[in-house]
Write a protein that binds this DNA or RNA. Structure first.
Length: 435
RNA sequence: GUGGCCUUAGCUCAACCGGCAGAGCAUCGGAUUGUGGCUCCGAAGGUUACGGGUUCAAGCCCCGUAGGCCACCCCA
């Protein structure tokens, strides 16, 4: 066992993971740019109150999953690592007076989030997310546009068959009334509720509807439905979102029990799951409307809607998938091989190998240099296994100003003057690709 | 935070009833002084996660800790 290892719930992203994840980020960033979103970035940590006030003090995320930054607590500073991106972005919106920008303000952010929960496959204490936010437009069309963007992202990276769960969870105008009605219902049946559900009744009643306890099936069947409890404005908004999605041809599943874990959500809520998995902790994306958040953080009343992509889980879904399409393969493919490797086993030539490689790179070519003193056979073997198409062999003919340019695929080689090397290699590469 | 399963080389895994810790892959070297992805040979790599206990003897049995995984919880 090594003396040190990555802290629980965190992991090192080695090239085999970081490379595909970077591609996911690139696809998402290019896509969002086409929709008019601009990248931004907030600090990794914020005043803890930003999350407590924005996300809600009685949510799991704030109550038990916040990572506090330990420094200087004695000086009254309470910082916490961001558990999600939206609260920080809303704080920035207020701080920078973005209400004076053309509305809606459309931004993206990519990076790590932190939650102190119990790790599991696809559930980490540090995880990566790509996030999209449109702040300042109350209309249902934006909701549909952002869900369509989400659907397109998953399709573009090779997950064309994701399941989009959709719901409306009302707003401050109608949720209290509905909550009162449904808690009253469950109080009447409290004797039949398991302990966990009784606790939820006090703390987070909406969760009861989503219970996995078999004992709850009967009770839940008779419960008042959230959809029926929507006020006219929320119902109309929801209907319009669905109509827009239908017009765009975006498939979704109505899920009246879908409840989001953060207090700031209003009206539209959605989550995205990979095709097969029914597993509950496998959401690969989620989002919704948060019309009260900016105001909670000290701004004017401002509507907003956002969507987060769980990059770790998207990657996992792609890796686990048996029937990968071309898009998925392109995300997971290893990095392209170098065009050529400069090899040579005479220690006296090391400087020349380094110089030649540098010149070739200066000419825009992807060239690896073997700067060791292993025997030539080993170097060629490594170059071939790397997938390089050419080897530049530096050896005796250097005395007459020449190196060997070897075609590793064809197994042929010829001498070429070092002064011509870049042009020669470029030409060889061109004819090679055509052949 | 609750319950359960697991942990042997860098990776994937063996090791009979408790009796000398092994293989494949990967790494490095060798097989004609400077020419290949295959093949052959070899080397290196281990406090059997960590700490205790039982026993003549523990990778194996018992306890604790850590980490991973699964189901909850919750979310991405």
């Amino acid at each position: 066992m090594p003396t040190f290892r990555a802290p629980r719930g965190t992991r090192d992203l080695l090239p085999a993971e970081r490379v595909p994840m970077t591609r996911l980020e690139r696809v998402a960033a290019d896509l969002a740019a086409r929709y008019g979103y601009h990248p931004m970035e907030t600090p990794l940590f914020e005043d803890a109150a930003v999350f407590e006030r924005g996300i809600g003090a009685v949510t799991d995320v704030v109550e038990k999953e916040l990572f506090f930054v330990g420094a200087r607590a004695d000086e009254g500073e309470r910082w916490a690592l961001r558990p999600e991106p939206t609260a920080g972005i809303a704080r920035a919106y207020v701080q920078h007076g973005m209400q004076t920008w053309p509305q809606p303000v459309k931004v993206t952010m990519t990076g790590s989030m932190f939650r102190y929960d119990r790790p599991q496959a696809g559930r980490y204490r540090q995880f990566w997310q790509f996030d999209v936010e449109a702040i300042g437009d109350p209309g249902p069309a934006v909701d549909a546009e952002i869900i369509e963007l989400a659907a397109r992202f998953y399709r573009d990276v090779g997950l064309p068959d994701v399941k989009i769960l959709l719901n409306s969870i009302g707003d401050p105008a109608c949720r209290p009334a509905y909550l009162e009605e449904m808690t009253a219902y469950y109080r009447r049946h409290e004797a039949r509720l398991p302990p966990l559900e009784r606790e939820r009744l006090e703390r987070n009643p909406l969760r009861i509807l989503d219970s996995k306890d078999p004992a709850m099936v009967d009770v839940n069947a008779g419960a008042p439905s959230m959809t029926d409890g929507l006020c006219e404005a929320c119902a109309g908004h929801f209907e319009a979102v669905r109509a827009h999605l239908d017009a765009l041809g975006i498939g979704y599943t109505l899920e009246p029990h879908l409840v989001r874990g953060l207090d700031y959500y209003t009206r539209t809520a959605f989550e995205v799951y990979p095709a097969g998995a029914g597993g509950q902790q496998s959401a690969i994306g989620g989002g919704g409307r948060y019309d009260g958040l900016v105001e909670l953080l000290g701004g004017r009343p401002t509507p907003g809607i956002g969507f987060g992509i769980g990059l770790d889980r998207v990657l996992l879904a792609l890796q686990e998938r048996a029937d990968r399409n071309a898009a998925a393969e392109a995300i997971l493919a290893p990095e392209p091989a170098p065009l050529a490797v400069v090899v040579g086993s005479d220690p006296a030539d090391t400087a020349t190998r380094l110089r030649l490689a540098t010149e070739l790179r200066g000419a825009g070519l992807a060239v690896r240099a073997d700067l060791g003193q292993r025997k030539l056979g080993k170097q060629l073997e490594a170059a071939a296994r790397d997938g390089a198409h050419f080897a530049v062999i530096v050896g005796d003919e250097l005395a007459s100003g020449q190196v060997q340019l070897r075609d590793l695929d064809a197994g042929t080689q010829r001498p070429t003057p070092v002064t011509n090397l870049a042009r020669d290699l470029e030409r060889a590469a061109r004819t090679h690709h055509h052949g």
